[in-house]
């Protein structure tokens, strides 16, 4: 199981979701994708996409002005 970290700090829609999607495509089942960003709408949008894909949303964490989302592929 690998942990793939993606930094989209400062990026706005649709970049965080696009990057998350790219990482999910490359990941193997069981891998963790950890996305760090600042765009408020993406913090809500990425979990929506995770739900639609039937994947596991491991964690959504606020860290000051940024957020961190962990997804299990």
């Amino acid at each position: 199981m690998a942990v793939v970290k993606i930094n989209v700090v400062g990026e706005t829609c649709p970049v965080p979701l696009v990057e998350a999607r790219k990482a999910l495509r490359k990941a193997s089942p069981g891998d963790i994708i950890e996305i760090t960003g600042t765009h408020p709408a993406s913090k809500k949008e990425i979990p929506m996409a995770v739900e639609a894909l039937g994947l596991e949303l491991v964690e959504v964490k606020e860290e000051g002005d940024s957020w961190k989302i962990k997804i299990k592929r």
Binding site: L17, V18, A52
Partner: peptide, 13 residues
């Protein structure tokens, strides 16, 4: 809503 968000979410579905 933004078209690119719709297309990305539809792609994932």
């Amino acid at each position: 809503v933004e078209g690119e968000s719709i297309t990305l979410h539809l792609d994932m579905r």
